[in-house]
Design a protein around this nucleic acid. Structure first.
Length: 954
RNA sequence: GGGCACGUAGCUCAGCGGGAGAGCACUACCUUGACAUGGUAGGGGUCACAGGUUCGAUCCCUGUCGUGCCCA
């Protein structure tokens, strides 16, 4: 029994349990052992995450593909899991400690803190998984993985060690993006360039050997800078080698104001003569460009800030080297001053001594940490790097060769652009939550990279014995006794970038590095579904790691979907307060409605502007299906055992089979091409416009009429078509379809595991004509290539008949509305000069016509009765005698309009056909088509004119 | 500055070389035995603008204007 009302909330909960109990989404089901695998790995959401609209879209699309392929008989593995999200998670737990006024991370110590994070993960880390289940995600939940679980950690260590051994991971001292709030290095991708209104300060640097005077321009050189506080670490001034203004100064030295350091003026093409004064200060330890200039020019690097972004001059040997007497005092004065306070203080001092020439407002881009939001400091530190340039080569080649393709294609350009200019990837993070780097340092700081501490120890001992740092005897003792080597080597404290482990996701989740059956069966995966914002973060890196370690691309297709925005097109963000919570939408409208909305709006290459109104509309769609199913139930519609829809005799039933086949084909084609919106719209139209509005309506007379073969067949067919709908709609609206599947018949199994409707190639008339023409006269090709198997349902006669009924009814309704004839008024219908075919058809549809078009009775005549409204239906005239019922003037107006319309058509076609070039150049079929249109329009015009003259006579 | 999109009905968006489409909103009518979360009919668009290619351009090309995003 189907409930009277469609209530998504309880129905969706119930279906989730049914699927779970049946383990419906388990990969490797015994009955599919021989099936083709179909694999998708989920983009693992952060454990800290809560389902947002982006997740909802991303997972809806993946689920549609998985359910589609599962119904097509594939062995589907949708691999779920979560990401440990280093910085984000650590921040969440630290915040929690602070809110509860508990000891902070540092006070607790590393071990205790990590315990605490794990505890948090166990308690709260499952939130998003449950939310994904509410959305209907058909993942193989039993295989859920976490980037920091044992198996995945093993993969991470293995990858690190192997890449290090291959020279593709190395330690280097260079500038990194340093986050002075989170106190860690971050990668280029985690830096956001934000436009900031600042100033350009013009500073005078006195030239050595001249007496400095603000009045004497020859006594100094002016440099422009946006970061005056870094002048403490300047080690040169650069001018362009071709800049004539400064030729005479190259090679001379200047005295760094306030500091007193002597620094050279060098010629370097980095300096842009158009910008500022053309002379630029060089601070290699605090600016990426300056760092490169410094390297080229052999300049010292003087770091003048500490980890927290405060000036650090006391005991700073690099800074103090070579400075005049009394510099310590200045150093003490500025030591510990925060960077922005220091900027102000230094500017005041420069101004006081006449070193500040002028200030210009200047808007420029400033790097910010995407997590902390603070200004990033280029900072000189030792970090671990991946040689991304080398790893990128095969990854570029794989996309070039088509081993992996992007959908839509244009994202490949973005991918290439980035991959071809890829920079070393800084992978070490000064955090605690994450995979600790498997490197141990000996007493002299030499690094030993190994999979285990034991292994590192033995490498270290061997090395130091050979270096004669320790004796062979000592070495043996240390190897045997843990206590003896206490403190001999210490592990690197840093952890890896979260994306390092995510990069391994397509194979680490399958059990790699072990040679599991899963790795063999499910790698490479079929498609990756993700947003364009993580092509660099994730997709590119999976490509690199997958190719390097598995020797094969991790996925053959990357489907890039759009961003979900609010209804005005603004990016959803907490600060703007325009976030639409998918869970709230699910509560209100149901997961099915939300999913359908997202799918219907997921046109390739276009962002989704989500409106809740639309979601509500699709809930109504679900309600419509619900009620149509109730109608079927109330009329005893079931599919009898062994029923063959292809054997249906009734034209209406043959017609719906034909339409179902066409819809199947359209939906299947669209899904295969990732055109989710086309697929969604096709099923929507089929359910509402075809099945509900016409098929069910036209079947009512039969269903409500006397028992007999026609009624039995119609009952079976109404149910059969509904089942086809449930299947075709299931990937989009899994809950309601499964629920209706369950409640409308006794079933062998779940809908979600039922076979997808047979993809019948129902060729159009044009296709049949083309095929026949193409094969005509060729003895090797049979006249018609397409075999019309039992399930092909192609039926021109049925299509012609139902098409005529539909057109007739629509026309009558239209005229009635225009004439303002109330539904209560039944009018007679006269078919004028009807063909034999029409004469045969019409009585079959009498009941339906009476009912739907509000017709009193039907008769045939050779000419239209006087004073009747006349319609042209498929070239034949239908008359509605309206004498006394209707305003004849209104009918005259209507006919005049119809005639004008026909004339306009004729005129347009004539213009075309009158154009010699058109006739000469356009394809022959098109010219034929135009001629046919012309004839049809002429005939229509004649009939309306005839009708009009008849009306005049009244 | 470089790159990628996008300007189509009041709104949100499909379509993309041969007669302008959907949903919502709007107007009128209808409680007909699945559904008023419904039905029927209808109004509404020089497809941003200007050139070009073509027999033919909303669609292809160029430019202009406007909007958004990514990278430097």
């Amino acid at each position: 029994m189907i409930d009277k009302n469609y209530q998504p909330a309880d129905l969706e909960g119930r279906m989730s349990l049914i699927w779970e109990d049946a383990r419906a989404f388990s990969a490797g089901r015994p009955d599919r052992r021989d099936a083709d695998p179909f694999t998708i790995v989920i983009p693992p959401p952060n454990v800290t995450g809560s389902l947002h609209m982006g997740h909802a879209l991303n997972n809806t699309l993946q689920d549609i593909l998985c359910r589609f392929e599962r119904m097509r008989g594939r062995d589907v593995l949708w691999q779920p899991g979560t990401d440990h999200a280093g910085i984000a998670t650590q921040m969440v737990v630290e915040r929690q400690l602070m809110e509860r006024q508990q000891p902070g991370r540092r006070e607790m110590g590393r071990e205790k803190f990590l315990e605490r994070v794990w505890q948090w993960k166990d308690e709260s880390g499952g939130t998003i998984i449950n939310q994904l289940k509410r959305l209907g995600a058909s993942c193989d939940w039993g295989r859920e993985r976490f980037t920091m679980d044992e198996g995945l950690s093993k993969a991470v260590v293995k990858v690190f060690v192997e890449l290090h051994r291959a020279g593709l991971i190395y330690k280097d001292k260079r500038l990194v993006n340093w986050d002075p709030k989170l106190l860690t290095a971050i990668s280029d991708l985690e830096v956001q360039q934000l436009e900031v209104k600042g100033n350009l300060w013009y500073l005078r640097y006195p030239i050595e050997g001249r007496t400095f005077s603000p009045e004497d321009p020859t006594s100094f050189i002016v440099v422009a800078t946006t970061r005056p506080e870094t002048m403490l670490g300047d080690t040169a001034i650069a001018v362009h080698p071709d800049d004539e203004r400064y030729q005479h100064l190259v090679g001379k030295r200047v005295i760094l104001p306030l500091v007193g350091r002597e620094i050279p003026i060098v010629a370097d093409t980095y300096s842009d003569p158009e910008k500022g004064t053309g002379a630029v200060k060089i601070t290699p330890a605090h600016d990426f460009n300056d760092f490169e200039v410094g390297r080229r020019q052999g300049l010292p690097q003087i770091s003048i800030l500490d980890r927290e972004g405060c000036v650090a001059l006391v005991d700073n040997e690099d800074y103090l080297r070579g400075l005049p007497e009394g510099s310590e005092e200045f150093a003490r004065e500025f030591h510990g001053v925060e960077r922005f306070a220091a900027r102000k203080k230094i500017l005041e001092r420069l101004e006081a001594f006449g070193f500040l020439e002028r200030v210009e407002p200047n808007t420029h881009m400033v790097p910010h940490g995407d997590r902390s939001g603070v200004v990033i400091e280029p900072y000189l530190t030792d970090q671990w790097y991946v040689d991304a340039k080398t790893l990128a080569q095969p990854a570029i080649a794989a996309v070039r060769s088509g081993a992996t393709t992007f959908v839509p294609r244009n994202w490949e350009k973005t991918y290439f652009e980035w991959m071809e200019n890829i920079q070393p990837w800084c992978i070490s993070r000064q955090l605690w939550w994450g995979h600790q780097i498997p490197a141990w340092y000996g007493p002299d700081g030499k690094a030993f990279v190994a999979e285990t501490e034991e292994e590192a120890v033995s490498h270290a001992i061997a090395y130091y014995v050979e270096q004669e740092v320790i004796s062979a005897e000592q070495g043996r003792e240390m190897a045997l006794d843990r206590n003896k080597r206490e403190g001999f080597i210490t592990r690197d404290e840093d952890v890896l970038d979260t994306w390092f482990s995510s990069a391994l996701w397509p194979f680490s989740t399958l059990g790699w590095p072990d040679a599991t059956p899963e790795v063999k069966r499910y790698y490479p995966t079929n498609v990756l579904v993700t947003g364009f914002d993580i092509i660099f973060f994730w997709v590119a890196r999976m490509m690199m790691m997958g190719l390097h370690f598995m020797g094969e691309v991790p996925f053959s297709t990357v489907y890039i979907h759009a961003l979900v925005r609010d209804e005005k097109g603004a990016k959803m963000s907490k600060s703007k307060g325009n976030v639409i919570d998918p869970l709230a939408l699910i509560d209100e409208h149901g997961a099915d409605a939300l999913r359908f909305t997202l799918a219907a709006m997921a046109a390739q290459g276009r962002d989704i502007k989500l409106s809740t109104q639309r979601v509500d509309g699709y809930r109504k769609f679900a309600n419509k299906l619900w009620n149509a199913s109730r109608f079927a139930e109330m009329n005893g519609c079931t599919v009898p055992e062994g029923f063959d829809p292809a054997a249906a005799k009734e034209p209406l039933n043959r017609w719906i089979a034909h339409e179902a086949a066409a819809a199947t084909r359209e939906i299947t084609d669209a899904l295969e091409a990732y055109r989710f919106n086309d697929a969604a719209n096709a099923i929507y139209r089929f359910v509402w416009d075809v099945y509900c509005d016409w098929y069910v309506e036209l079947s009512k007379p039969t269903l409500l009429g006397e028992d007999g073969p026609a009624k039995a067949e119609t009952r079976a067919m109404v149910a059969w078509a509904r089942d086809e709908i449930l299947k075709l709609l299931h990937p989009f609206m899994p809950f309601i379809t499964e629920a209706l599947w369950e409640s409308t018949a006794k079933r062998d199994g779940l809908l979600t595991l039922s076979p997808w409707p047979h993809r019948t190639d129902a060729p159009t008339l044009a296709e049949i004509a083309a095929l026949s023409a193409a094969s005509f006269g060729d003895p090797l090709v049979p006249p018609i290539l397409v075999s019309f198997d039992a399930a092909s349902f192609k039926d021109e006669a049925a299509e012609g008949e139902i098409g005529w009924v539909v057109d007739l009814m629509s026309s009558i309704r239209s005229v009635r509305a225009e004439m303002n004839i109330p539904p209560s008024t039944l009018i007679p219908l006269v078919l004028v000069g009807a063909s034999a075919e029409t004469k045969a058809r019409a009585p079959r549809w009498l009941e339906a016509i009476k009912r739907i078009a509000r017709v009193a009775d039907l008769s045939f005549a050779d000419s239209a009765p006087d004073g009747s409204a006349q319609l042209v239906v498929r070239g034949e005239v239908a008359a509605l005698p309206l004498k006394g019922v209707v305003d004849l003037a209104a009918e005259r107006t209507r006919l005049t309009k119809e005639i004008a319309k026909a004339e306009a058509d004729i005129e347009r076609v004539d213009k075309k056909l009158g154009n010699e070039k058109f006739v000469a150049n356009a394809p022959e079929e098109l010219v034929e088509e135009e001629k046919e249109k012309r004839d049809a329009a002429l005939a229509r015009k004649a009939k309306f004119q005839d009708a009009l003259s008849r009306l005049q006579g009244v």
